[in-house]
Amino acid sequence: MTLETTSHREVTVNLESGLHMVPCSRIAEHVRDFAGTVCIMVEDRSVDAKSIFDLLTLRAPLGTVLTIEAVGPNSDDLVQGLAALFERNFEPE
């Protein structure tokens, strides 16, 4: 049985244009099949990372620090994968 866990991670937006539609699409695609919930938070706002519409409302320019929170099976792996996307500026591996 896979245990449901909660994982957090802070990431920084390093894109000159901020978190625009391409990175938002990549995030939604990355978390789509995760059997749990994933939120991305900034200040007092929290959005569902599975929804591109929600992600686009983050309005996160260059330098914004976001917190990722995943709840579900292997949440650590999911969060690490998302953080890696941010670290390589959403470029393919």
């Binding site: 000159e16 244009s17 901020g18 625009h20 929804s51 929600d54 983050l58 996160a60 260059l62």
Partner: peptide
């Protein structure tokens, strides 16, 4: 003006939800 682009996208997405 990347900030304006993000604000425009935010506004559109918020209403289209």
């Amino acid at each position: 003006r990347p900030g304006d682009h993000l604000r425009g996208l935010e506004s559109i997405s918020r209403h289209l939800k």
